[in-house]
Simulated assay, not measured.
Amino acid sequence: MSRLLDVSDDVRAEIGDEEADRLLAGENAPGGYDCTSCRTPGDSAQERTSTVLFVGDETAVLAFAHAACLPSQVVQVAEDQLQGAVRSMTGSPDAPAGGGPQVAAPTQAVLGVTSGLLLIAGELHPALVVEPTGPISRPGAEPGGGDDFLPLLIEQGFMPVSELNEAPRVLPGWSVLLAMGQLHAVLQPGTGGTSSQVAWWQAHQALQVTDGWRAAANKTHTVLVLAAPVGSIGRQPREDLLRDALDKAAANGRLVAAAMPLAGT
Rank of each mutant, 00 (worst) to 15 (best):
A95H: 07
G99N: 06
G98R: 05
P71F: 00
D94Y: 14
V75C: 02
A67M: 10
V113A: 09
Q83L: 11
P101F: 04
V74G: 04
L117R: 11
Q73N: 12
A63L: 15
V110C: 03
F64V: 10
T107F: 05
L111C: 05
L117W: 07
L124D: 05
D94W: 14
Q108D: 12
G122A: 12
L128K: 10
Q76W: 10
I120F: 12
V103Y: 04
P106A: 00
Q73T: 14
V86G: 00
H125T: 08
V110D: 01
G98Y: 14
L111N: 13
G100K: 04
S72R: 00
V86A: 03
D94Q: 09
Q83I: 15
V103S: 08
G122E: 06
Q81P: 04
V77W: 10
S115H: 12
D80Y: 01
F64L: 11
Q81C: 07
Q81Y: 10
S92P: 06
S72M: 00
P101I: 00
S72K: 04
T90F: 11
L118D: 08
L128S: 04
L70H: 06
G100V: 10
A104L: 05
Q81G: 15
S92D: 11
V103H: 12
Q108Y: 11
P96L: 00
A109R: 08
T107C: 12
L118P: 12
V74K: 01
G100M: 08
S115C: 03
D80S: 02
C69V: 04
H66F: 07
H66Y: 13
D94G: 09
A63R: 14
P96N: 03
V129P: 08
S72T: 05
S72E: 01
G91A: 07
P101C: 02
A104H: 02
F64I: 03
G91Y: 10
L117T: 03
A127D: 03
A65Q: 05
V77K: 14
A67T: 09
V86W: 02
S92E: 03
V129N: 01
L119W: 02
V110S: 03
R87M: 09
Q73L: 15
M89A: 03
V113S: 04
G91W: 15
Q76G: 00
C69M: 14
A109P: 07
A78M: 05
A78W: 01
